[in-house]
């Protein structure tokens, strides 16, 4: 019985993925992407990966979906105008459109062959055993009780630290790529009274729920990233509600919030090295406490970065036009 649910879910996911790419309308495509993300999150619940499910739902489907929706704001209307006249979009003579067919046929054939080989590879995979046993054995020394948190913030803390760096890097990249003035604070959207009320109501709830997720991460599913997204959602909502949070605080504070997760992690690591240990080798007695601090700071930083990414992308069109387009 349960296997039927899995099969059904798998089929739905594949259908959504294909449909999402094939549908001619961009807005449909984005909504299908939302649905696909939720389907993926469900799949992860089925696979017992609650942490991943929360992260996926929150970041990959939620946050990214919001970004895509926001992007539609600039893309969508013009796309629908151009839909009427296909040839205008491609700006190619007929001959060239025809010449596209052959490569695509070959591509589909290639994809099919590739699919068979990939399926064979996945099907024939030997059982490597995984690392469950060693993780279980070392869990008591890690300072937390939830194994995923232990791996994330202790056993493979280095990856996690770099990943916090990647988010910050992504924000810097958005600044550069979007042509956004670094020192101009993002302005507020037009406040909508209704929205404002909702936001004022929702914000504390989200905050508390985020804090709960963060705290629970020590013993069960939840943790820094999940909390971060919720807190990031607060920032986004506030931004939408006419209260751009980063326009309100001094810049140094903004930078401090952005970097403190990465910075604290790193400074702690350096102190540990100075103490004769290796990077991120926490003293077992303090491990639990240190991990909690790191998670909290990390969550705040990530939330700030996500908010800033959204706010800056959201403001892109109004921001710029100072750099001359060159051809």
């Amino acid at each position: 019985m349960s296997i039927l649910i899995d099969i059904l879910l798998a089929i739905i996911m594949v259908y959504l993925a294909i449909q999402c790419l094939l549908t001619p309308r961009l807005i449909q495509s984005v909504f299908l992407f939302f649905a696909f993300g939720l389907g993926l999150a469900l799949a992860w619940v089925r696979l017992g990966a609650i942490d991943v499910a929360i992260t996926e739902a929150a970041i990959a489907a939620g946050f990214l979906g919001v970004l895509f929706l926001d992007a539609l704001k600039s893309f969508a209307p013009k796309v629908s105008v151009k839909q009427d006249n296909l040839e205008d979009i491609y700006k190619l003579p007929r001959r060239n459109i025809k010449s596209l067919i052959l490569p695509r046929v070959i591509l589909v054939l290639g994809l099919a062959l590739f699919l068979f080989i990939a399926l064979e590879a996945v099907w024939m995979i030997p059982d490597g055993g995984g690392l469950t046993a060693s993780a279980e054995a070392l869990l008591p020394q890690s300072g937390v009780e939830h194994p995923v948190t232990a791996v994330l913030l202790n056993f493979r803390a280095y990856d996690t630290w770099l990943e916090i760096g990647v988010i910050l890097l992504g924000l810097l990249g958005v600044f550069v790529a979007g042509g956004i003035k670094l020192y101009k604070k993002p302005g507020a959207s037009k406040p909508d009274p209704m929205l404002r009320q909702v936001i004022l109501f929702v914000t504390p709830v989200l905050f508390l729920f985020g804090a709960f997720l963060l705290y629970i991460g020590k013993t069960g599913p939840g943790g820094a990233f999940q909390a971060a997204v919720l807190w990031g959602a607060i920032g986004i909502l506030l931004h939408l509600g006419g209260k751009p949070i980063f326009a309100m605080i001094p810049r140094w504070l903004f930078h401090l919030i952005l970097t403190m997760g990465l910075g604290f992690f790193l400074v702690l690591g350096f102190l540990l090295i100075a103490d004769g240990r290796t990077l991120f080798e926490y003293p077992p007695a303090y491990a639990g406490l240190l991990i909690l601090i790191i998670e909290t700071l990390g969550a705040i930083s990530i939330a700030a970065a996500l908010t800033a990414i959204y706010a800056n992308l959201n403001q892109m069109e109004e921001e710029t036009n100072e750099v001359e387009p060159t051809t």
Binding site: T55, V148, V151
Partner: peptide, 10 residues
């Protein structure tokens, strides 16, 4: 296995 979970979150 917690390791893939952590990897996937990252």
């Amino acid at each position: 296995d917690p390791v893939p979970h952590a990897l996937v979150i990252t």
